[in-house]
């Protein structure tokens, strides 16, 4: 199996360095091409609105991916990442495909996160739904 590097883009210096080192993403076309490449490589993209996620979430998600040996399959892009907006636009053309998921409860529509926050589902179930799509 081809070795794949897990990339978690959390914005800030780390993300900026990644982009500077690896690709130019200042223009939208290249951001789009970056995302196209992720998808053609078979990566699954999680768009996560970092404003709404409790601190432990990322940690738990990471642990779960690790335990499932699935880290290499996912690209996690948070809302402060430079390619987040482009990715959100992209997912409008790619809705409900398993390759891209948007997780948020801060914008104007329903969210799986609401189920967690209102106690309908557990954190474990939320993460399993995100990772495995169930």
């Amino acid at each position: 199996m081809m070795e794949r590097k897990l990339a978690i883009f959390g914005g800030g210096n780390e993300a900026a360095k990644y982009y500077t080192d690896n690709m130019v993403v200042n223009i939208r076309r290249e951001k789009l091409d970056t995302l196209r490449k992720f998808i053609s490589d078979g990566k699954r993209i999680l768009l996560i609105d970092s404003n709404v996620f409790f601190p432990s979430f990322k940690e738990r998600l990471s642990e779960h991916l690790e335990s499932q040996h699935a880290k290499d399959d996912f690209i996690i892009i948070e809302s402060d990442s430079p390619i987040y907006d482009t990715a959100v636009r992209l997912y409008n053309c790619y809705e409900y495909d398993n390759n891209i998921r948007l997780l948020t409860n801060s914008s104007g529509y329903a969210s799986l996160v609401n189920y967690y926050l209102t106690g309908i589902i557990t954190e474990k179930q939320l993460i399993e739904m995100i990772v495995h799509g169930l």
Binding site: Y91, N92, E95, Y96, I100, R101, L102, N105, Y109, A110, S111, L112, N114, Y115, L117, T118, I120, I121, Q125, M129, G133, L134
Partner: peptide, 28 residues
């Protein structure tokens, strides 16, 4: 809508009546 919210996925392991889907899932 949008379909990517995936609320229906929770139904794979739990029965959630439509009323509660709106109350908790849609509106929080």
């Amino acid at each position: 809508r949008p379909y990517v919210v995936y609320l229906h996925k929770a139904l794979y392991f739990k029965m959630i009546p439509l009323d509660m889907i709106y109350r908790c899932g849609v509106y929080g």
